[in-house]
Design a protein around this nucleic acid. Structure first.
Lengths: 210, 210, 210, 210
DNA sequence: GATGAATGAGCTTTCATTCAT
DNA sequence: AATGAATGAAAGCTCATTCAT
């Protein structure tokens, strides 16, 4: 009977599934913003539901717990960031230029969608107990890590960057960029974040080049 | 510092003040450990009191709120770290060697007293609402920042490091080192943290040198 | 009974009524099992609907509330048990033999369809607030009580059982048999429930005989 | 220091511990009444706290969860009932008289403290999921069972009751008496519960005697 | 200074029921 | 008849903080 319905109401059903997917994403977006702005523990489920003008109970039809929601968000965020870097990886430019573009894309995102970067810093980084179960060993951020790894391996292979332990290089990217965004969030940077693209991409390049 | 107090004060009533200072510090130490291990929100005041075998009520005689305690801890931690770097700043060695020593001291601390570094990452970094009031603009970590600033200014003046916006350099130190310790905490580093001293101090030096 | 309906009604629209009756019964069966196994409050309407692969909304087309469903089930269960005893009542055997058969039938049901007996113990017995309105004074289990009453009156009239307050006798049947099934459910009985038929029917007979 | 305090304030401390024990018992009493009257799931922790004019939070200082409270109550109830029967067991009277007294004591309690018996029927019997963990195999009601077992073994040894599987006899006591109290609770008994002592003790004796 | 019982607001999560489709 | 997203009140439980002793 289900099959029958599927055939019969194909258009209708698809619209429903689509609608649900859209709502799911809108929950992710809203929760991402609230978690980033107010912290994981200070953001309540009713906060999220109210912002979305939906009921608490219904929110649980989409995500079975607050923790599950937090994990879906980090995956989502990691994918988005990873996709940006993938584009750069696929460009036919020098490693130095790629570094510049990665820093640029990261800081642009920190400016235009600060919640995405801040989620890393303020939610993922510091609520180990939430992500321990299901995100062990950074698998929930593999979307992002993988692209940095590809960038680094390519650059080493092409002879433009020194060969060293990947994590030494990864820590530089992740930590340096994250650190700058943190400073931005603390309002201590004397200049706009984009001002630093030049300095920082040069520093990174010098740190890693052969 | 404790030793210093002991020398300074003599007599009966001063011993009481001394005793109180000692207890105050033991609370800081214990809370530091628990906050770092379990997170700020997952650590309760009763948790801290139980660990110290003292009553909750009495704990409040030393710190008027959980938030105040958290702020005292970040200052304390920042002082300890800052003192270590001050020692290095006062050495008569090259900037390159200083960088090496700073990285070394940081990673040694991450290994021997991981709670001090993790407090930065897991508590200070991500509970803005707690530190907003009283620690604006990173004044509670000025003990650490100041020393990095002195190191950097000296090195620029001596002509060994390139002159650039201080925060570009500071973000590199703070972010890179913090990032590595985070990776260590996530258990993703294939080698012991101390293994990375060589790589990372070289990377930092190359990034900043003239 | 279902078979009977099938014979009685013919034609298209009647088939619909038949279909509805079938579905109604399947809901009762499923809910009976779930309520018995997991308890009334731990069984949710979605649980029942999912097990039946039907929607919650549709389930409400058959039973207007969870409480109504629970009441229908106790009536159904009582009818089934009553029917079994009715058969025994109609047999041309001694009261002693009837007691044996009643115990036997009860324990066989406890073994083969444990949910029917457990529903009495775990749902009906303990959720007074659910059955208060509509099942006052045990009218929802009259199907079962009536047959025990008929058995007892016949036996007294025939001179084989002592004349005493009906409830003294009824409490013995209901309580003793129910108690044994409870012990079975708690897994404390050293032997299979059927082993006890002999003992228990003898005990009951001795308790009640003239 | 603790030791010191204990010596110093011995009187005071004992009073505090005593006070706590009293409060603990008052919680048990109140929860027992509410659980029995309204059912386990329909009684909320706020209900209990309000009745006691204490705060919800403080109640949790005495019992770590609703389930734990329920288990403490069944142990308590079982002890009280067991103590009553122990007294009878120690009397120098015939088994027949002991049966009479057991039934009498049970029905008296059902009349004067109905919540104790009803707790067995309406809470313990039917919320398996609550008692599963920690009360397996009826260990939480062993206070009661043990005394029935002692009564039965003594009576068999003295030659006054037939030797049979203990559970056949235990089921008779527990089920029959419980069943009668259930009927009382349903308000279907035409006479006062005490009226049935005579009938029921005779029935039990006849059921079990040699 | 020291104790820990007490408070109560606030959290996450559940679920019977409704209703637009 | 059938669907299942949506509602929202209410549950169990936690915890920073207070205060009488």
């Amino acid at each position: 009977m289900l099959k029958y319905n599927r055939l019969r109401y194909k258009g209708g059903e698809l619209k429903i599934a689509e609608k649900k997917a859209l709502k799911r994403e809108s929950i992710i977006q809203t929760a991402l913003q609230l978690f980033s702005k107010n912290g994981f523990h200070k953001t309540t489920i009713p906060d999220i539901a109210n912002t979305l003008k939906m009921s608490v109970g219904n929110l649980y039809n989409y995500f079975s717990s607050k923790d599950v929601l937090a994990k879906e968000i980090i995956k989502y965020t990691s994918e988005v960031l990873g996709a940006e870097i993938r584009t750069i990886n696929n460009m036919d430019i020098s490693s130095e230029e790629k570094i510049y573009k990665i820093v640029e894309v990261y800081f642009t995102m920190a400016k235009e969608r600060p919640e995405m970067i801040e989620y890393f810093l303020r939610v993922y980084l510091s609520n180990r107990e939430v992500f321990n179960d299901g995100c062990e060993g950074m698998i929930c951020v593999s979307g992002f890590i993988t692209e940095i790894m590809i960038f680094f391996d390519d650059a080493v292979e092409s002879g433009s960057l020194r060969n060293q332990d990947f994590f030494s290089a990864f820590g530089l990217f992740m930590g340096y960029l994250g650190g700058m965004v943190f400073l931005k969030g603390e309002d201590v940077l004397p200049k706009d974040i984009e001002f630093y693209v030049e300095d920082i991409s040069r520093n990174i390049y010098h740190a890693l080049k052969v």
